[in-house]
Every structure is written in structure tokens, then in C-alpha cells.
């Protein structure tokens, strides 16, 4: 079922107080998102990768996670290079060999240096942020993150929303798997016909209805055990003495990158 592969481990980052890690991750993300030049962005990516290395995360899983994120980035590479003004790098079309009705004269695309630079910048920044979040927020399980959110002073409702969304995702996924198995053992093979679409529509409906029922029963069971809108933690997040220092160092690094990014043109550097 839904797993949290990165939350298990014994590295220094895994043991750190999730509150400190969350604050550091947030600060890093904000700073990285504001970068405007590729140099500091590349450094941010290196920082993110270094954090992941430090957390000793399993590389194949990490790469798979990154691949998922970069699907979205790939779409940017389809459009961004061709949509900013700048010095032309690559020109596709017009196609004089082809008949006019198939490829008219105006049909041409030009990739510019500014466009490619922008796409590169976005790629560097988004990967840096994802890596940092996996290394910092992903190394605590979702319950710990939920509690950290509450203990950082955010409203309890937000923390509960996070925790219950997670719990409910499991429920919905379970119901879906159950229904899919039930359909499979009765000989259902998906195709591109009306029967398939109708079956999937029914399944989606059933998943919703059943998940709702189950959520209701889970809620009842919680109330019977005295739940009154507040989660109590069994284990106070232990944390280590150096956690605050660790967070401070990460935040300072991120701030330094941002400062370098802003000061770069002022200092006349390329």
C-alpha cells in the first residue's frame, strides 16, 4: 500500500526534531524559489543532493521520485525555450520542401538562449527544492510531520487535516484495490469499450461511497476511545541538542545563496 520509504532510517537527519527540519525545508524552498541565475541555482541543487546523501536515502527510489517530478519539468522544456524573446539557438521550420497547405510559411519555431536558460533555471530550482524536502521533511513519517505542524503553532485543524488526508488516502487506495481485485477475479479485462468505461465509473462511485462509510466508522471508533479533536503524541519527538543549529546552518546556506544571487549583478560578475 502507500508507503513512506524515506521515513525509515537512522541517519542524523532522521533523528532530528521534525519541527527544525520543517522550518529549514520551508526556508530553503523559499530562498531557492527566488533565485534568478543558474550558478546559485546549481549550488542549491548540490545542497539538496548533499542533504539526501547525508540522509543515506536509497538511490533507486530517490531517482524514481525525481523522475516523477521531472515529468512536469519536461512539459516546460517543450514550451519555455520557444516562448521567450532572445538570440535564436535553434530554428524548426519553415519547411520549403513540403506543400504549402501542409506547412505554411509562417509555421516555424525558434528556441532562444533566454528561453533555454529559463527552462534550465526552473529545472535546477525545482529539483533542488524536491531533494531538500525529501531529505528534510521526508525523513520523518507523516504523523511526526503532522505533530510538528501543530507544535509549530499552526492551527490544530490544519494538522488534523494533514493526518486524516493521509489516513484516508490509505483507505481509498485499499478500497480501490479490493474492488479491482473483485472485478479481475470475475474476468474483467479493461479495454476501450463502453463496458470498460461503465465499470470504471461504477468503481469510482463505489470507492467514494465505501470510503465515506469507512471514514464514518473510523470516526466513530475514535470517538468511542475518547477522541475529542486533539491528537496526543505517545513519544515526544526526541530531537538532538544540535537540531536548532542544524536548521540554522541550512537556513543560512539558503540565505547565502539568495544573497549571492541578488548581489551578483551588482558586483559585475557574469
Amino acid at each position: 500500500m502507500l508507503d513512506e520509504p524515506f521515513s525509515r532510517g537512522a541517519s542524523r537527519l532522521h533523528l532530528a526534531d521534525p519541527r527544525c527540519k520543517l522550518v529549514a525545508a520551508l526556508a530553503f524552498a523559499v530562498c531557492a524559489a527566488l533565485l534568478r541565475s543558474p550558478g546559485p541555482a546549481a549550488l542549491a541543487l548540490l545542497t539538496g543532493a548533499a542533504l539526501c546523501l547525508w540522509a543515506r536515502l536509497p538511490l533507486p527510489r530517490l531517482l524514481r521520485r525525481l523522475a516523477a517530478v521531472n515529468v512536469f519539468v519536461a512539459f516546460l522544456w517543450l514550451f519555455l525555450p520557444f516562448s521567450l524573446p532572445g538570440a535564436p539557438l535553434l530554428r524548426i521550420g519553415p519547411f520549403p520542401g513540403l506543400p504549402d497547405w501542409l506547412a505554411p510559411n509562417w509555421l516555424s519555431l525558434t528556441a532562444t538562449d533566454a528561453g533555454v536558460a529559463q527552462a534550465l533555471l526552473v529545472t535546477l530550482k525545482s529539483n533542488a527544492i524536491v531533494l531538500a524536502f525529501i531529505a528534510l521533511a521526508g525523513t520523518s513519517d507523516i504523523t511526526a510531520v503532522g505533530h510538528a505542524v501543530a507544535r509549530l503553532g499552526l492551527p490544530d485543524k490544519l494538522a488534523l487535516l494533514l493526518l486524516f488526508t493521509w489516513r484516508q488516502l490509505h483507505v481509498v487506495a485499499q478500497e480501490y484495490h479490493r474492488l479491482r481485485t473483485a472485478a479481475k477475479v470475475r474476468g474483467f479485462t479493461p479495454g476501450t469499450d463502453l463496458h470498460t468505461y461503465r465499470t470504471y465509473a461504477n468503481m469510482a462511485g463505489m470507492v467514494l461511497v465505501r470510503s465515506f462509510d469507512r471514514a464514518e466508522r473510523v470516526g466513530q471508533a475514535m470517538r468511542l476511545r475518547g477522541f475529542a479533536g486533539r491528537f496526543h503524541m505517545l513519544a515526544e519527538p526526541a530531537g538532538r541538542p544540535g537540531d536548532r543549529l542544524l536548521a540554522a546552518v541550512i537556513i543560512l546556506c539558503a540565505a547565502a545563496l539568495l544573497a549571492a544571487d541578488i548581489l551578483q549583478p551588482l558586483a559585475g560578475l557574469p
Binding site: G226, F227, A228, H232, L234
Partner: peptide
């Protein structure tokens, strides 16, 4: 431990 915690037991 969920029930005892809800009823005010210390961790």
C-alpha cells in the same frame, strides 16, 4: 495507547 492518552494519561 490512543485511548489512555485521550483520557488524560501522560505519554
Amino acid at each position: 495507547a490512543f485511548g489512555p492518552l485521550n483520557h488524560g494519561a501522560s505519554p
